[in-house]
């Protein structure tokens, strides 16, 4: 039986290649008859993974690796990493809004997936990766610390959520659109407030269990802000 490759070679030898217009017309007719394949969110997420810049993964990993930094006292580790979490959140915002900064979102919007899909896929990927890192650090810290894993996780997530929420609001504004690195200012402010509160013993005086509720509330607020951002006109598919 003839193999596909042999059949292809035979056809190439014995038939002339069609001109551009006829080929176009044929492919279009074929696509119309067979119908186009519907695309799922998973396929888009997988595709976008290859287009996220390596520095985003590397810096997130380096922040998480602070846990192994020998010069930080073990009881301070949680607060030191929590103080770096705003930069992790800021980086994710920078990458998610990349299309907007470079003026590519309009082109992405008229593809099969739409700009809203691309935005959401990038956000899903980076957030999932960073939350996974946070979960690992929370477990490593929480095991040997009186607060436990859930409180440690909340301590790490609160500055991440606050930075993410404020950055999303800023990015939707004219100022955010014109200042690509506005997330740095937001991250620095959140880190400074966090460090000041820690130095003044604010966290230590709290009933730490309440932090779990605060983290849950901020998570809901973050979801709300992501939705609001997706619904802005530049990202909406009509």
């Amino acid at each position: 039986m003839m193999k596909d490759r042999e059949l292809k070679q035979l056809l190439q030898i014995n038939t002339e290649s069609p001109d551009y217009a006829s080929k176009d017309a044929f492919i279009r007719r074929y696509k119309k008859e067979t119908g186009s394949e519907k695309t799922g969110h998973i396929k888009l997420v997988m595709m976008q993974a290859g287009y996220i810049r390596k520095r985003i993964w590397i810096i997130s990993l380096l922040i998480a690796a602070t846990f192994y930094f020998p010069y930080v006292e073990s009881e301070d580790k949680l607060f030191v990493i929590a103080g770096l979490m705003p930069f992790m959140a800021g980086l994710s915002i920078l990458e998610v809004f990349r299309s907007e900064y470079h003026g590519v979102s309009e082109l992405e919007a008229v593809t099969k997936f739409s700009a809203k899909g691309v935005f959401f896929a990038r956000m899903t990927l980076i957030s999932a990766f960073q939350l996974m890192l946070t979960a690992v650090i929370s477990a490593l810290i929480g095991i040997n610390n009186p607060y436990g894993i859930a409180v440690s996780g909340s301590m790490l997530l609160i500055p991440w959520f606050i930075t993410s929420i404020i950055s999303l609001i800023v990015e939707r504004s004219e100022f955010g659109r014109n200042n690509r690195y506005s997330f740095v200012a937001v991250a620095v402010c959140v880190t400074c407030i966090h460090t000041t509160l820690y130095s003044n013993g604010f966290f230590q005086s709290l009933d730490m269990r309440y932090l779990i509720f605060v983290a849950a509330l901020l998570f809901a607020l973050n979801v709300f802000e992501v939705r609001k951002t997706i619904e802005t006109e530049t990202l909406v598919w009509n």
Partner: peptide, 18 residues
């Protein structure tokens, strides 16, 4: 999505990833 499948668009100003 069906419309986007058959649509081609070139805006007046467009960007690219550097």
């Amino acid at each position: 999505e069906d419309y986007r499948n058959v649509l081609g668009y070139l805006p007046q100003d467009f960007g690219y990833y550097p």
